[in-house]
Computed example of a mutant assay.
Amino acid sequence: MPAGLRRYVEAIPGTPLPHGILGASCTTVNDVTEDRIHELNGVEWLAMGCCPVQDWPDPCEEESPGEESPGSPPQKEFCRPVTEHASPITVYAGAECSTLGWTYAEAREHAEASLALGEQQGLEAAFWRTKLAMDAVDLTPAAGPVSVAQGVAALEGCLAETYGGVGTLHVPAGVAALLGCCNVLREDPETGALRTLAGNCAIIGAGYSALNTGPGNIPAEPGTAWLYITGPLVIRRGPVDTVPDTAGASVNYRTNDRRVLVERTFVVGTTCTVCAIQVVTCD
Rank of each mutant, 00 (worst) to 15 (best):
P73Q: 14
D31C: 01
V82L: 07
D31P: 01
V152W: 04
V43K: 01
Y208C: 02
T196H: 04
C79A: 03
G223A: 01
T281A: 10
S87H: 10
L227S: 08
A176L: 11
P2R: 15
P52M: 07
V148N: 07
E63S: 12
C282Y: 11
Y253L: 15
E190H: 11
S114D: 12
G71K: 06
G174A: 12
C282N: 14
H19P: 03
C60S: 15
R236A: 03
Q75I: 15
V43Y: 00
G101Y: 06
R108M: 04
R258P: 09
P141D: 10
V268K: 01
G14H: 05
T168Q: 08
E221Q: 14
A105Q: 06
L233Y: 07
G94Q: 15
C275K: 02
G238R: 00
L233Q: 06
G199I: 11
I12D: 13
T168A: 05
A86P: 07
P16L: 02
L169N: 12
S209E: 13
E62I: 13
T265E: 00
D188N: 08
A210K: 11
V279F: 01
C201K: 12
R129E: 15
P73T: 12
P244F: 03
T213S: 09
G157R: 10
A133N: 04
G144Y: 10
S87W: 07
P88E: 00
A116M: 11
T196I: 07
T130E: 08
G199L: 08
L139Y: 13
A225P: 10
T28N: 13
V234K: 05
C50Q: 14
P59V: 09
V91G: 00
R254N: 15
S114T: 14
D188W: 03
E44N: 11
Q150N: 11
G71T: 05
E161N: 15
V166R: 13
G192P: 04
C26N: 07
A149F: 05
T242D: 04
G269W: 03
C272L: 11
L159H: 03
Q75T: 15
A160S: 14
A143D: 09
V148A: 06
A107W: 05
T242F: 02
L40H: 01
N217W: 03
P13K: 06
N183C: 14
A225V: 07
A202Y: 04
C158T: 14
G165W: 03
L132I: 04
E68K: 12
T273R: 07
G174N: 15
A276I: 09
S250Q: 06
F127H: 02
C79P: 03
A198E: 13
A105P: 00
A173L: 08
Y208E: 10
G66T: 09
D55K: 07
E119I: 02
A173N: 05
V43F: 02
E112P: 12
I204F: 11
